[in-house]
Amino acid sequence: MSLDNILNHWSDYRKGSEDGGHHDYEHRWAMAINLDLCIGCNACSTACYAENNLAVVGKERFEKGQAMHWMRIERYWDQQELEHPEQGASFLPMMCQQCGAATCEPVCPVAATYHTPDGLNAQVYNRCIGSRYCSNNCPFRVRYFNFYSYYDSSWPEPMEQQLNPDISVRDKGVMEKCTFCMQRIRSVKDKAFMEDRPVQDGEVVPACAQSCPTSAIVFGDTMDDGSMVSKLWKKHQVERGVYQKTKLAKKDADLRGYRIFEELNVDPSVMYLERVREDI
């Protein structure tokens, strides 16, 4: 972000956030999560802990809301059943939606979070000063802050041996969040580059999608028309950057796709497929 860059690209800079400021995406990684298949087993969350060196904060701090689960299973009950029984919950796996017009990006004072050519919101841990504005401006509340230094408490010897060497361990005072398993994307892209070929669909599998027993999570590149995720998005008529109001009005039983908080116009990269319930 040099001065020349700002002066030369001032107009782009100002209207940039509408599509993330990039016009030359290499990939646009996206997900489709079928809520009808989700059984709320938390395998995705556990896999995420293992893959991304997430700190285990302990019961007390979890209760205070200081947990670090990049991937969390949200449980909701229908409005009639206010007593929250053990059964009957709807599950919603929630992770960073890698928004195309992410609200976290413009508010960071030091530009520690920015948009990559892969269509992801990257978080630069080393640049983060911990103002936590990004998290406050995230409607999905999926950014997690290192309120403490967890290295000793979370991975006592010899547990540090199981840390993933492809990704850093964050210390106190920085923000972190789901990266769509950036390290896996990187290694696949590197491999494809060495073999001089494009990245194939299904080659990149994030830890959550890999561990899902019902294959509820489909991951892929929406720039690749042949990918599974593109087909799903197309089938359910969910488009990038387009507010899906008209489609929702149609009430077609087959069109189950939606993106959360579509009305906020943040262009999330995750499409959910509505749960089908017979009694409704």
Binding site: G65, Q66, A67, R141, N146, F147, Y148, S149, K172, G173
Partner: peptide
């Protein structure tokens, strides 16, 4: 110790 001592949390 860390910002957590102020009981700040995710929301």
């Amino acid at each position: 110790v860390g910002m957590g001592t102020a009981d700040l949390n995710n929301p």
